[in-house]
Simulated assay, not measured.
Amino acid sequence: MYLKENNINLYNFKLLAKKMHLLHSSAFIFIVGGTNGKGTVCYFLEKIFINSGYRVGLYTSPHLLDEIERVRINGQYVERSVYQYAFSLVRLYQKNFFLTYFEFITLVALVLFKDTKLDVIILEVGLGGRLDATNIINTDLSIITNVGIDHVDCLGSTRSSIGFEKAHIARKNKFIIFGEYDIPGKMVHVIKNKQAILKLFKRDWFIIKNKNNWSYVSRTRNIYNISYPNVSLNSISVALTALFCSPFIIYNNVIIDVIKNIVIPGRFQIISQKPKIILDVGHNPHAILNLSKKIKKISHKRKKIYVIMGILKDKDFHNMILNLIEVVDYWYTAPIDTIKGFTWCQLNKILPNFFNICKNVQKVWDVVQKRTNKEDVIVVCGSFYLVSEIMKIMKLKVII
């Protein structure tokens, strides 16, 4: 199991980060974990702080088109020459020590943050939490969006085992925000042992939904009549709770404006209206179920829903399909350019016969384009890899 093998390596990784003087910062540091919604929470926090006049560093993953997307300072990607300088510095210190790709880029991000005067740093956990590279930092506030079944080969096959791994981003006497009410027992045990202060959805804060707007209600702060966002409402509420547990002054008008206008690359991102084309990187059953609910809201009888789904070996694609089956009219897929993907022959063997399987992503895109009209909806989902390939075919850029 990856996590067991990574235990010793993470210890050495932390020693390397210490040698580079990367473990401490004067900035207030958020760490964001969870099965789904991590990226949404990170992007939302970044926007809120920037619009409130604070200087912000964001480290997130994975990227869609270019690894430089993983690090932003004050909402902007760093210049490539600056990124390459940080890259070279990590390489200099690394010498003969083995680093995973994620560990290496984490150090690159920390170097870039160290060289910039920041008020806030936001770190997105790559995998799990306990042995993730981001967990070497003594963070100030921890967030776990939710716990679902994903990465079972690394984290375990139950919410309890996965929650155990994720809960280790908690810190003594500091807040940890959890975006579900049903909290796994092992997770509670870790949080208590670490003496962290737990904030729990539907206990410490609530979402009240109305037809045209919603309200955030908690014991310390309320915001009423907020427009529904184009992203996960639960993720927004989790981020708000984290904001209100931090020492920063954030005004309601800033929050309401950011929620109203937020668009996040690859998160139910509508890139065309006729036909409506939606990009969504959701890649597990829970994320796909949320996608299904959003599709229902925008579809009507005249529209046909075409789905191009990424099918990877390490994902529960059978339940992903089941969670979309009610809303989809036509199904398409193709082999994806990654070692995690299936071949064309394998896809033919494992998928239901209602799938149209093309030889490659370019071909599936061409076929769907020819078969749809302006009233239809095309949804590209199931994998960062697939969304990335479609973006390259369409010559799209990541707009932040």
Rank of each mutant, 00 (worst) to 15 (best):
Thr35Ile: 08
Arg130Cys: 12
Glu46Ala: 11
Gly129Gln: 00
Gln94Val: 07
Tyr83Ala: 12
Lys38Val: 02
Cys42Gln: 04
Gln84Tyr: 13
Glu46Tyr: 06
Asp140Gln: 04
Thr100Pro: 02
Phe87Asn: 13
Glu124Gly: 02
Phe104Leu: 09
Asn74Pro: 06
Leu107Ser: 02
Leu64Pro: 03
Leu107Cys: 06
Arg130Tyr: 12
Val71Met: 07
Leu110Asp: 00
Val111Gly: 00
Ala86Lys: 07
Leu112Tyr: 05
Thr106Asp: 05
Ser142Met: 13
Asn96Leu: 11
Leu127Ala: 07
Asn135Trp: 06
Phe44Ala: 04
Val41Phe: 06
Gly37Gln: 00
Leu131Asp: 08
Ser81Gly: 07
Lys117Val: 14
Ile122Lys: 07
Ser61Lys: 05
Phe113Met: 01
Lys95His: 13
Phe87Trp: 15
Leu131Gly: 03
Val71Ser: 03
Asp66Trp: 02
Lys95Arg: 14
Gly126Trp: 03
Gly37Glu: 05
Gln84Ser: 14
Ile105Phe: 13
Phe49Gly: 04
Arg80Lys: 15
Thr139Trp: 10
Ile137Tyr: 05
Glu69Leu: 05
Ile144Ala: 11
Arg130Asp: 13
Val78Asp: 02
Phe49His: 04
Arg91His: 14
Gly57Leu: 01
Leu89Ser: 09
Val125Ser: 13
Gly75His: 09
Gly128Pro: 11
Thr100Tyr: 06
Lys117Asp: 15
Lys95Asp: 14
Gly33Tyr: 02
Gln76His: 14
Asn74Trp: 09
Val56Glu: 07
Phe102His: 10
Val125Gly: 10
